[in-house]
Every structure is written in C-alpha cells, then in structure tokens.
Write a protein that binds this DNA or RNA. Structure first.
Length: 669
DNA sequence: ACAAATACTATTTTT
DNA sequence: TAGTATTTGT
C-alpha cells in the first residue's frame, strides 16, 4: 500500500482566512480556531445545495453542530431549521451540543428521524390523506402479526405452503423501500417464491386494506404518505418547505429513494440543503438504502458545492491504514483517504482461536488485561455482525462478572411482556385495534384464536369501545378469565384518567399471567415498572405509544441488570449497525470468519458482498487506539455444508505490515 | 370445535 | 431458539 499522505486529496482552499468563520461581534464561538478549514467552510456555507463527504471520524457531528449554532447566531430562526438524522438520539445529541455551544435557542430546532418527522407532519395533515388524527403506528412485530392473521385467512384451504409472516413482511417492505414492483423483488431476491406470486400479491392487498380500516401505519407507510402528501398537495408542500428554510440531512448514504424524494420536495423551493454522508459507510441496503443517492445529489441539485472531510480525529494511523486497505478494493465513486496527524499506535491484531468459546475466553481475558492496566470498561466495545454472535461471549462475561450493556438485536419494546402491557392500554384509545384485542384476549385462559376472533367481532360491532366487552351478548360461558378482564376494564373506566394509574392497574391484572408464562418474571416485572416511569413523562397515551414505536429504548433484553443508564462502568456489546457513529478506545470485532462475515449467503451476490465490506470498514473505524479482530476456526456452516476455517476475505489479503496475525490454541487459557 | 401440548426446522442487520 | 405445523386432549 502506498504511504497515506500521497493519496490525500486536499479540496478546500489553502488560503483560508482565520477570521471568516468568526460570528458577529460578541460571539463566544471562535469558529476559525475550533474547526479545520474544510469543516469551517461547511459550517459557514451560506445558501444553496451543499454536499459534505465526511470520512469516518472526520468530525461530521462537530460540523453539523457548529453549523446549527452558526446559523442561529447569524439570525436564522431556530424554528426554520430542520435537522434529519438517522436516530433521534443522534439529532438530540447534536442539538444539545449546539445549545451548549451557543444558547437555548438551539433546542427549538426541529430535529429527528425521517420517521419521527413524518409522524409530526402526518398527524397535522391526517385528514388530507384520509387518516384519523390519532392513527396508530405499528412496529414490525405488529405488522407481522397482522400479516399472520391474513395469511391464515388466505390459506383457508390448508395445504399450500405460504412463506412465513416475517418473510412476507420483509418482502413487502423491500418493494416499498426500493420502489420496485413485487415481481421484481420476488424474481431477484426470493426466486423460490415465484410460483406463489399471485397469492402473495393477494396477501399484500388485504394487508394494505386492513391497515387502512384500522388506521394503522407501519414504518414504511410513514414515508409513503409523507411523500404522497408532499407530491400531491402543492400548497401543503409549499407551506412546509417555507417553514423549514434550512434543511440538513445526516447519514445521507443510508437514505432510500423515498427519502431522497422527500428531501427533494422539501428543499425544492429554496434549495438550502446540506447533506452529509460517506458512501463507504453505507450499510442499510437491506432496508432499501441506496448510497447512489449521495452520488446523484449534485445532479438533482445543479450547482451543488462539494466539500470533503478527510482528516480523521478519532483513530491512530495503524487503524486508518487497515481501514483504508479494507475499503480500497471497493468500487466506490467518491474516493477518499483517511489520514491523521497523530502518530504512534500499535498494529491491529487478527487472532484465530480454536472454537467459539475459545474466542469468547480470549476476548474476556484481553479485556481483563486492559482493565487492570487502567482502561475503564465503558471505553471498550465488542462488535459483531449479528446479534446472536455474542451469546457465548455473554455467558463468559457473566461468569467473569464483567458488567456489560448490549445494544441492538431484540429491543425491550419488542419483547412479549412489554407488548402485552401496551396492548391492554391500546384497546382503550383504539377500541377497534384488532391486533391489541387479539393479544389481550389470547392471554385469557381457555380463549384461543377462534374465540378471540368472535369476541372481537362482537365488540367491534357495538362500537362503544372497550366497554363493548362488558355488555351482554357474548356466547362464551363459564370463563373465569374473561370475567377478570371485564373487571379490569370497568375499574379502568372508574379510575382517574392518569396514564400511570392505568398502567398500574394493567400490571396488577397482568402479573399472574406473566409469572405463569415466563420463568424469568422478576426481570420482566422490573421492565414493566421501568415502563411505568417512562409513562409518567407523558400526558397523552397516543404520544407515549408513538414514541415507543418510533424510538424504542435501544438497549436489548438481556442487559436488564445494568438499566441504570450507563452510570455503571460497563462494557458495550453492539451490532455493527447499532455502533454507527460511535467510538471507543478499544474495539473487538468477533466472528471475522469467512462464511460468517461475510456470510456465505452474501458471497453469492456482489452487491451484498460489497455491503459486508463496508460493514467491516464501519466496524474497524470505530476504534481510537486498539483494534482486535478475532475468528474461531473449524465452524460447521449449515448453508454450505462445509467447515469454515479461513479469516474473512476482506482481511485475508491485507499484508503483515498492516495487520498482525496471532493464533491461540485451546489449551492456552 | 377449539385450545393446549408437542414435534420440527431454519437461523442478519433497523426505523 | 423461536416460530410454525401437527397431534393430542377436553
């Protein structure tokens, strides 16, 4: 590999003047001192379309933060700034920092994800698109449950093997997010379902119809309807566009066609649009994201100014050398090369172990060593491709009593006990919510899908809300469980209408069922109590429910021991996707085994193979000082019926001067 | 007729 | 391991 310095492209003007960035007199922020020239140029850029290509660790967040402050400081009303980011947490963090930098005005900036922004706008204009103001947002699980019910109806005959509900859900989601017809997606990605395309399409139609009837919106619908609102109603588009005079979009490489179109329409009239991204870090193609959006941007907005941020402030040079070598073979358009001025540092290590458990013990031992040398656990992360890749490690960490937090994978809000509690609440604000009724009724003993369906019909026909259950006319006799549910409903109506009051009653009712259904009920009770504390912050149940689906607490189910908000000094375990934008002193990457990462399935498709490569790149660039990659050998792969023993192909070609190799025998622990 | 118990099978990533 | 298909039991 050539020396790094030779490849760097300097694209900002070199004669930059230290004073240009300085705000009007009295400014507390010395932009010229606190930013490098390229960052400064982006921050002080005035009007028009701007594309910022920001390499990993190049101060992207810093640039966005300072730009918000700079705009507000120079008289732009914070209410006319829109900051769209990938997670709500990320945008809130940026606004918090901007507030610290300047003043409270920055808190008034509208910030969030595309989905949360769509939620705000669509609630306001619900009537226009034919929805109730109080429409329900359903998460992936709800959407699958609905799909499951439809699947059963369509399959009334019995013996045709329909795809499972999760397959259907991802299939439909792909057609929406990629904007392609069903046949194309089936042909390209699910060829084995080709014969069933008619039934599948039928399920899709019924699903769409059912959603409309219930005023349900799934994640994709939020984008679909926002786009429809903007493109079909010029007056509304105009009003919204005028309202947000300055628009900034973070992580632009992970937007899909619909999101790009939304941005296009929002910025259409004023073109004051700044998008920030890195095509090398595009890792959401499975969700329809298209990194080409970033390449097309200058074409959609002629006259786009382009700024590249290539100086890295995060990692030491050896880590950047590896990162550059990883991404070098990728066929990408905006070539860039990360460099740093910080010298020193050790080579990243690639360690082979004899088994999965040996890998876990190796990682635990290395972490213990670092910890004893004074590195706090919260500066260390273990990253992996898929959530279950850390199961074995979690056992070893527990054995070594090393506290950890797991991010990504199964979310708290997706776990059965939380959904159960929420369903009991939802039947009060959305009495025709079939999904929630179904959930609630199935929890009553001696009631199965059939009876639940019958009871639901009766309730829906009466149209008097949850009280419908209390009225006579149910031909269900001798069900003590149902009487208890009736009790709950009447006490809820009698109770003061406070959210927490309701929640407590539900918990009281649900507790015995929870104890019977789950062995680990003490933990789950604590989760529900946690949920009640979150509820205290809300006045309206709808707002609470919408937030729960749009921004569920990101920590996963297994880490309830350390719920106290990261105060404890804990190790982070995370999927690579959830680690995006974050950094740690020391990073471990697990399962860098060819056949697992990249997975053997993705090896067949060049596109997904490239995405896996970018994923490895994202993982490697999270590290500041130490990077430790491991893989176990001799793992049997069911998909290919072969034994895997080679390191990830992305690492295999990298020379010894960049990546140190080690081998650990089983007996060495 | 319907609910509960048991057997079987295919395994990413997230708003 | 969890989600689905099948069998058993009331």
């Amino acid at each position: 590999m050539p020396p790094i310095g030779e490849k760097k492209i300097v694209c900002h003007s070199s004669d930059h003047n230290d004073t240009i960035g300085r705000g009007s007199q009295g400014s507390s922020i010395d932009y010229g001192r606190e930013l490098n020239p390229a960052q400064l140029e982006a921050v002080t850029f005035e009007k028009g379309p701007l594309l910022v290509i920001a390499g990993a660790g190049s101060g992207k967040t810093r640039t966005l933060t300072y730009r918000v402050a700079h705009l507000v400081e120079n008289g732009v009303s914070p209410k006319s700034i829109l900051l769209l980011s990938f997670t709500r947490k990320a945008s809130q963090e940026m606004l918090k920092r901007a507030t610290k930098l300047l003043d409270n005005r920055c808190q008034e900036v509208t910030g969030g994800t595309f989905h949360s922004f769509a939620n705000i706008i669509l609630r306001r204009y619900a009537k226009v698109i034919g929805f109730d103001h109080g429409f329900t947002i359903i998460d992936r699980g709800d959407s699958e449950d609905l799909m499951g019910m439809i699947r059963k109806e369509v399959d009334a005959g019995g013996s045709c093997h329909l795809p499972r509900k999760s397959t259907l859900a991802s299939l439909f989601s792909r057609t929406v997010n990629k904007g392609l017809p069903l046949e194309d997606i089936v042909y390209e990605e699910y060829p084995h379902l080709g014969a069933q395309i008619d039934v599948i399409d039928r399920i899709r139609q019924v699903y769409a119809q059912r959603k409309r009837e219930h005023h349900f919106m799934d994640y994709d619908d939020l984008l679909v309807y926002l786009l429809r609102l903007l493109s079909d109603h010029h007056d509304i588009r105009r009003r919204i566009s005028d309202m947000y005079e300055y628009i900034m979009v973070d992580e632009y490489q992970d937007t899909n066609a619909m999101q790009a179109e939304i941005v296009f329409l929002l910025a259409g009239s004023h073109r004051n649009l700044m998008v920030v991204g890195d095509d090398a870090q595009s890792i959401y193609a499975f969700r329809g994201a298209n990194y080409k959006n970033i390449i097309d941007f200058p074409h959609r907005f002629p006259g786009t100014h382009i700024i590249k941020l290539e100086q890295n402030y995060r990692s030491l040079q050896p880590i950047l050398d590896l990162a550059n070598a990883l991404i070098e073979p990728a066929a990408e358009k905006y070539s860039k090369c990360l460099f740093t001025q910080r010298g020193g540092g050790q080579l990243p290590v690639l360690a082979a172990t004899t088994s999965e458990n040996a890998q876990s013990r190796y990682v635990v031992r290395e972490i213990a060593r670092l910890r004893s040398k004074g590195l706090p656990l919260d500066r260390i992360a273990v990253l992996f491709r898929a959530s279950f890749h850390s199961f074995d490690l979690e056992l070893e960490l527990t054995r070594a009593s090393m506290p950890f937090i797991k991010v990504g994978g199964f979310k708290l809000a997706e776990s059965a006990h939380i959904k159960d509690v929420l369903a009991h609440l939802r039947i009060f604000i959305a009495p025709r919510d079939r999904l929630s009724w179904n959930r609630v009724l199935l929890l009553v003993e001696k009631i199965g899908p059939r009876t639940a369906e019958r009871i639901y019909e009766t309730i829906a026909r009466q149209g008097i809300g949850a009280q419908g259950l209390l009225s006579a006319g149910l031909k269900v006799k001798n069900k003590p469980g149902l009487d208890r549910l009736k009790d709950l409903i009447s006490t809820m109506y009698a109770a003061p209408h406070s959210l927490v009051g309701w929640g407590e009653r539900v918990l009281q009712y649900y507790l015995p069922k929870l104890k019977e259904r789950f062995d680990d009920h003490p933990r789950r009770v604590r989760d529900i109590e946690q949920l009640l504390t979150i509820m205290e912050r809300y006045e309206h149940l709808e707002d609470f429910l919408a937030d729960m689906t749009l921004e569920p607490p990101n920590t996963s189910v297994e880490d309830r021991l350390t719920v106290d908000e990261g105060h404890a000094d804990s190790l982070t375990l995370s999927t690579i996707h959830s680690a995006k934008g974050l950094e740690w002193d020391t990073v471990f990457i697990l399962w860098a085994l060819d056949g697992r990462f990249p997975s053997s399935q993705s090896c067949e498709q060049p596109n997904s193979l490239e995405e896996e490569r970018r994923l490895m790149y994202v993982a490697a660039t999270r590290a500041q000082h130490h990077l430790n990659i491991t893989y176990p050998v001799g793992i049997f792969d069911h998909a290919t019926q072969s034994v895997l023993y080679e390191p990830s192909r992305f690492l295999d070609a990298i020379p010894e001067e960049v990546l140190e190799r080690r081998y650990f025998k089983a007996g060495s622990f």
